[in-house]
Design a protein around this nucleic acid. Structure first.
Lengths: 209, 209
DNA sequence: GGCCTAATGTGAATTTTATCACAAAAAGCT
DNA sequence: AGCTTTTTGTGATAAAATTCACATTAGGCC
């Protein structure tokens, strides 16, 4: 199943949760499509891909939907994660509230700099030498890399050797993993460059019309 | 031109810069492909799409390549950006070093909370009421939204009315813009959920083999 | 200069992804 | 109960992205 479909499925889930909070019991494919900025046909096709079905003319029962989707995404249980590299971004993530709704909890940070071994509000920061033991003992599966790009590959390897299975990487560099680990990249500068390009395209289109 | 191609082009540019720093004068399509995790055919096809050409048997001259790509991406001049919402993520971005290489500079932050109107190291934080004037006076084109999702749409509209043309949005919600503004979204929880899904897939594949 | 080799550049083929369009079913109304 | 309307579910179609494969060309060597 492609990454894009899974991302959409997560979006569906989030929006459906929101509908639920508003007191709705049923949704239609267009409600969902409208809310995430897609088409109803795609919503239905995605659902059908996973064997999720609704009721003709009656839409989908929110409760069922959420259950099915959560089953697919495998996210009923709390997922513990660690952050390595407690600089600006890493420090922010350690305190980030946005994960709470998603059953994701950052349980520790790691850094090489002793000046950072203090307690961020709730999350303790450890020296990097303790990463492997901690990850093994706590059975952590998720790691977030916020170190400078020069150090990122090394941290990845440490994480892999500790048993981490999924990595979110903020270093703007290609990490080389293996088939025991899945890696997603977030590259903020890239996102901004992309935006700049499309602003320029818009400008050119304006001029020529 | 699709977003994905532009992202790749930026990646090419970054990696080529790196080659340049190492003292190389020429690169081959496989060098680039290998470094960003793609195929050489795709690199060449992308280049050909933009009319970038090299020398048969001789690869590409780095100097030329960088010039051509920068021209396409339109990023020779410094781009000023503002951040709205100086919470954990916003505060981190205001001090983020990763933009410097990319000719992007965050020149101000904005927030509703007076407690945050202090100086982050180099960047001043202003009350949100001053956003419009500031953006107009300084001719800012780029905005980063780090406010809670409930406030994000409102901030977008403020930005648009001030003349901002490109937005990087960290609020996990669909923003509704118009055709004067281009919006990219970063949704960290979504990225992590995605990773979790693929870890589970891997596990199932393991079991069944 | 002629030959060999290593690269590019790009049409064609393939694969992937998204859209269309419509039959089938269910709900509600009279 | 029968008619109408609304919405699903999905094959068929179209569009987009990627990969293949190979003709072409330039560099290097003898």
């Amino acid at each position: 199943m492609s990454k894009a479909v899974i991302i959409r499925l997560s979006k569906y889930k989030n929006i459906i949760k929101r509908f639920k909070k508003l007191g709705f019991v049923k949704v239609f494919s267009d409600n969902i499509a409208e809310a995430i900025g897609g088409t109803s046909a795609q919503v239905r096709k995605d659902f059908s891909l996973f064997g999720i079905s609704g009721n003709k003319r009656g839409g989908y029962i929110i409760e069922n939907l959420l259950e099915k989707i959560s089953e697919i995404l495998g996210k009923d249980s709390l997922q513990k994660a660690i952050v390595v590299g407690i600089g600006h971004i890493g420090g922010a993530l350690v305190n980030y509230k946005g994960f709470e709704n998603e059953n994701i909890k950052i349980v520790a940070g790691f850094d090489i700099d002793p000046a950072r071994y203090k307690n961020e509000k709730n999350v303790r920061i450890y020296p990097i030498e303790q990463l492997k033991d901690f990850v093994k003992k706590e059975n952590i599966k998720l790691g977030i890399i916020c170190v400078p790009d020069i150090a990122a590959q090394q941290i990845l390897e440490l994480m892999i050797s500790a048993g981490i299975r999924g990595v979110l990487n903020f270093a703007p560099i290609l990490l080389r993993g293996n088939d025991t680990v899945v890696i997603n990249n977030v590259n903020l500068a890239l996102e901004l460059e992309n935006i700049i390009y499309f602003i320029n395209v818009q400008d050119k289109e304006m001029q020529s019309s």
